[in-house]
Structures are given as C-alpha cells and as structure tokens.
Lab assay of single mutants.
Amino acid sequence: MDVFMKGLSKAKEGVVAAAEKTKQGVAEAAGKTKEGVLYVGSKTKEGVVHGVATVAEKTKEQVTNVGGAVVTGVTAVAQKTVEGAGSIAAATGFVKKDQLGKNEEGAPQEGILEDMPVDPDNEAYEMPSEEGYQDYEPEA
C-alpha cells in the first residue's frame, strides 16, 4: 500500500510541476504579447503594419512553449490582441483601416495563427491545408 501511495504522490508532483510550467509559459506569452502591443503603439504610420505582424510573430513563438489545451486559448487571445492593436492603430490615425491585415508588401496577414497546427491532446499534428499553395516548377 505504501508503494501505491508513494507512486500516487510522485504522479501528483509531476502534474503540479507540469501545471506550473504551463502557467509560466502562458505568463511569458502574455508578456511578449504586451511587449508587441507597446511596440505597435510606438510606431509611426509606416511601421504600424509591420508592428502588428511582430506582435503576432512574438506571440506565436511563445505559444510553442505552452502545451496542451492552453495553446488553443493563448492563440485565440493573441489573435484578438493583434486585431485590437490594429483597431487602436486605425482609431489613433497611425494607419488607414484599409491597410490593416496586410503586410508591407500588401499581402493579407489573416491566418497567421489560424494555420498553425495545434492539437490540445498532444496526440497528432496535421499540416495546414494546401489550398493556398501553388506547385513550383523550376525553369529549365
């Protein structure tokens, strides 16, 4: 019985440690998101679009440190934060509304985080759909 109880105690310690790591990862992701939003706020009209992409990228980098179902929630929060940063930029006159959601080359930025393969159960990952990809044929 002692062996059984000791095993359960060790398992509990492992769960607590994993929860603490997840909590730490979420806190880091939130900190990076805040950094990115402050970065966007300090940019001029020309830099705002690039700044919004930076927020998304920093958040995406930190999301990889967070495991399990938390990833889905962090990704949703990050996307809403990026959308909010863009709205703030438009409201303050840093950028025109028609410039939001495009990178410096004018290509749409939507789907940055949505296409990231995420499995809350950590069982399997699927690649994003290939609808947006084109076949590449090298020139002879």
Rank of each mutant, 00 (worst) to 15 (best):
Gly68Tyr: 11
Gly31Phe: 15
Leu100Asp: 09
Glu126Leu: 06
Asn65Arg: 13
Glu137Asp: 06
Val52Phe: 04
Glu28Gly: 03
Leu38His: 03
Asp98Arg: 10
Glu126Lys: 09
Ala29Leu: 07
Gln62Glu: 03
Ser87Met: 14
Lys96Leu: 11
Ile112Gln: 05
Thr75Cys: 10
Val55Glu: 00
Gly86Tyr: 13
Gly86Pro: 05
Val77Ser: 02
Glu105Trp: 02
Val15Cys: 06
Thr59Cys: 10
Gln99His: 14
Gly14Leu: 13
Met5Arg: 10
Gly36Asp: 02
Val37Ser: 01
Gly14Gln: 15
Lys58Asn: 05
Thr44Arg: 01
Gly106Ser: 13
Pro120Ala: 09
His50Ala: 14
Val48Glu: 00
Ala17Gln: 10
Asn103Arg: 08
Ala140Gly: 13
Val95Leu: 13
Ala53Ser: 08
Ser42Trp: 15
Gln24Trp: 07
Pro138Lys: 05
Ala89Phe: 13
Met116Ile: 09
Met1Gly: 00
Lys102Pro: 15
Lys97Leu: 11
Thr22Glu: 00
Gly68His: 08
Glu104Asp: 14
Glu105Asn: 10
Thr64Asn: 12
Pro138Asn: 04
Gly84Val: 14
Gly31Val: 03
Ala53Glu: 07
Glu137Ser: 09
Ala56Arg: 09
Lys97Thr: 10
Thr75Phe: 15
Ala78Met: 14
Leu113Asp: 13
Met5Val: 08
Lys10Tyr: 05
Lys32Ser: 02
Ala90Leu: 14
Gly67Ala: 10
Gly51Ser: 03
His50Thr: 08
Glu35Asp: 11
Glu123His: 09
Glu83Ile: 14
Ala56Cys: 14
Gly67Val: 11
Gln134Met: 14
Thr75Pro: 01
Thr81Val: 15
Gly31Tyr: 13
Glu28Asn: 02
Gly84Lys: 12
Ala56Phe: 09
Val118Ile: 04
Asp2Phe: 15
Glu105Asp: 11
Ser129Ile: 06
Val95His: 11
Gly68Trp: 14
Glu110Val: 08
Gly14Lys: 12
Ser42Leu: 11
Gly41Thr: 12
Asn103His: 07
Lys23Gly: 01
Ala89Ser: 05
Glu123Phe: 12
Glu46Asp: 12
Gln79Glu: 03
Ala85Asp: 02
His50Cys: 10
Gly132Phe: 14
Ile112Arg: 07
Gln62Tyr: 04
Ala69Cys: 06
Ala124Tyr: 14
Met1His: 00
Leu38Cys: 09
Glu131Pro: 10
Ala29Tyr: 13
Ala78Cys: 07
Val49Ser: 09
Gly7Val: 13
Thr64Cys: 09
Glu61Phe: 05
Asp115Tyr: 10
Val55Thr: 02
His50Trp: 12
Tyr136Val: 10
Glu20Tyr: 13
Thr54His: 13
Tyr39Trp: 10
Glu46Arg: 07
Gly67Lys: 05
Val26Gln: 00
Gly67Glu: 02
Tyr125Trp: 08
Asn65Asp: 05
Lys32Glu: 00
Gly84Arg: 13
Lys60Thr: 04
Glu137Val: 05
Gly67Pro: 02
Val55Asn: 00
Glu110Pro: 11
Gly106Tyr: 12
Gly41Phe: 12
Glu130His: 09
Asp119Tyr: 03
Ala19Phe: 15
Pro108Ser: 08
Thr44Leu: 09
Asn103Phe: 10
Asp98Met: 05
Pro108Ala: 06
Asp121Ile: 08
Val71Trp: 15
Lys21Asn: 02
Asp121Trp: 05
Glu131Leu: 05
Ala140Val: 12
Ala85Phe: 10
Gln79Tyr: 12
Gly36Phe: 04
Tyr39Pro: 00
Gly68Ile: 15
Val82Pro: 02
Glu20Ala: 09
Met127Cys: 08
Glu126Ser: 05
Leu8Val: 04
Lys12Pro: 00
Ala17Trp: 12
Glu126Cys: 13
Gly84Leu: 14
Lys43Glu: 00
Lys6Val: 02
Ala76Ser: 07
Gln134Leu: 13
Tyr136Ser: 14
Ser42Arg: 08
Tyr133Glu: 11
Tyr125His: 14
Val49Cys: 14
Val49Arg: 09
Val55Gly: 01
Lys43Gln: 03
Ala140Asn: 13
Gly31Asn: 12
Ala85Val: 10
Lys97Val: 15
Pro138Met: 06
Ala69Ile: 11
Glu57Gln: 06
Glu110Leu: 12
Tyr136Glu: 03
Pro120Ser: 10
Leu8Asn: 00
Val71Gly: 02
Thr33Ser: 07
Val16Cys: 12
Lys21Val: 10
Lys32His: 09
Lys6Pro: 00
Met1Lys: 00
Leu38Met: 13
Val63Thr: 02
Pro117Glu: 02
Gly47Met: 07
Lys96Val: 12
Glu83Asp: 06
Thr81Met: 10
Gln99Val: 11
Lys58Leu: 10
Ala90Val: 07
Ala11Tyr: 03
Ala30Arg: 02
Met127Gly: 04
Ala124Cys: 14
Gln79Trp: 05
Val70Ile: 12
Val71Leu: 10
Lys21Asp: 00
Lys10Gly: 01
Val55Ala: 05
Gly68Phe: 01
Tyr125Gln: 13
Lys60Gly: 03
Ala27Glu: 02
Gln109Phe: 10
Leu113Ile: 12
Lys80Phe: 14
Thr81Leu: 11
Glu28Gln: 07
Pro108Val: 08
Lys34Ile: 06
Val95Thr: 10
Val49Tyr: 13
